[in-house]
Nucleic acid binder design. Structure first.
Lengths: 202, 202
DNA sequence: ACCTGAACACCGTTCAAGT
DNA sequence: ACCTGAACACCGTTCAAGT
C-alpha cells in the first residue's frame, strides 16, 4: 500500500495525483461522476487542498481534458510516423483513432464535449503543436501523399481538418448511439475510409 | 401579457410550456443554465409541479433534446426534397445543416452531447423515422443519385451515415473551437463538400 | 503546502397539506 | 392538476485556525 510522506501535511505531488485520479474516474464513470468530495476522499486529502493548485473545479477539469487529449494523441501518432506506405499509415491511424473512442467513450466525450468551457487555443486544440503532434503528423502525411501524387493538391491543413472532422464525426455518432449499424459497423468504417481516400485522390 | 387561466391552480399546458421555455434557456445560455428553480419561476409555476409531467429533470431534458432535434430536422428537410438537382440539394442541405449548428451552437451541442443519458433509439436517433425525416430524405436522395449514375452504388444507409458523420464532425469541431480556420472556414466547407462528393462519385 | 471543520449558497427531489 | 412551504442530501466554494 501507499506509504505516507514524511509529514502528513504534505502530499507527494497532489496536483498530478488529482488529475490522474480524476482521469480514472472519467474513464470508468464519465465526467459527471467527478465530485471534489469523492476525488479528495480517494486521495486521502482535504477538499480545500484542491484550491492550492486549481482556482476552481473547471480549471481542474481542463487539466484532465488536456491529459485525456494527450492519451488520444499518443495513441494515434505512432501510426502516422511508421514505416508503412502513405495509405497504410492513413488507414491505420483512422482505425486506431476510432478504436480509442470506442474503447474510451467517456474520455473521448470529455475531450470533445463542452461541459466545461475551455480555451481550446491554449489546451487541446487539434492545431496546437504542443499537445497535438497527431495533427501535425497528419498534415505531414498528407503533404507526403501530395508529393507522391497520391492525394490531390489542396491546402494540407484544410485537408487534414476535413479528415479529422470525418473521423471525429464517425467516432462521435458511434459512441453516443445516434447510429445503430452495430451489425455492420465495420462496413461503415470500410465505406468511410474508401470514400475519404477516393475523394482526396490525385 | 399572459392571461391567467380560469383557476390559478391550473396552467394551460404546463408540460409543453416547460419544454418550450427550457429550449429557450438552452438556446441562449446552454444546457447547463437550466435549473428547475429558474425554469419554474419563469413560468410562474411551482417547482414540484414539474413532477406531475416528468419523473426527473433528466426526463424533462430528454424532451427538450427531442424538441431541439426536430428543429434541426425541420431546418434541413426542405432542402432535401426541393426541385433542385441532386447535387444542389445535397449541397444546400449541408450548408443549411452547418448554418444551423453555427447559429444555434447550444442547441446543437445539447442534441449531440451526452450530458443526459438518452435512449437514442427512442428519441433522436438519426435513423428514427418519426423524428428524423431528414435522414430518410437523405437516403432517398442518395438512392436517386445512384439511379442517375451520379453516386457510387453503395449501401445508401451506410452512405448516408457517412455523409451525416462528416458534416456532423465539421459542425462539432467548428462550434467547439477545436479548429481555428475562421479566416477561411468557407474554404474548409468548400473543400469538404467537394471531397465528399468526389469520394461518392459513380 | 497542506490539514480540520464549519459555513454558505445552490441544487434536484420529496412530502404533507391545501384548492 | 396544480399550489405553498418546508425539508433532505448533495454540491462547489470559502474561511479561520492549525502544523
Amino acid at each position: 500500500m501507499k506509504k505516507k510522506d514524511s509529514s502528513p501535511y504534505h502530499h507527494g505531488n497532489l496536483k498530478d495525483a488529482l488529475v490522474e485520479e480524476a482521469l480514472k474516474m472519467v474513464k470508468t464513470d464519465g465526467i459527471q461522476s467527478i465530485t471534489l468530495r469523492e476525488l479528495t476522499t480517494k486521495l486521502g486529502s482535504s477538499r480545500s487542498a484542491i484550491y492550492r493548485h486549481f482556482s476552481s473545479k473547471d480549471e481542474l477539469i481542463r487539466a484532465v481534458i488536456q491529459a485525456g487529449f494527450m492519451q488520444l494523441d499518443e495513441t494515434i501518432s505512432p501510426f502516422l510516423i511508421s514505416n508503412d506506405t502513405v495509405l497504410a499509415r492513413f488507414r491505420n491511424m483512422g482505425e486506431a483513432y476510432i478504436a480509442f473512442a470506442l474503447t474510451n467513450p467517456n474520455i473521448y466525450r470529455m475531450i470533445f464535449g463542452n461541459e466545461v468551457q475551455t480555451q481550446r487555443e491554449e489546451s487541446c486544440d487539434i492545431h496546437n503543436e504542443e499537445n497535438s503532434g497527431g495533427f501535425q503528423h497528419l498534415v505531414a502525411l498528407l503533404i507526403e501523399g501530395q508529393e507522391k501524387k497520391i492525394f490531390k493538391d489542396d491546402d494540407p491543413i484544410l485537408q487534414a481538418t476535413y479528415v479529422w472532422a470525418s473521423i471525429h464525426g464517425l467516432s462521435n455518432l458511434c459512441i453516443d448511439g445516434h447510429i445503430h449499424v452495430q451489425d455492420n459497423i465495420e462496413a461503415l468504417f470500410e465505406l468511410s475510409f474508401e470514400t475519404i481516400i477516393k475523394g482526396m485522390k490525385f
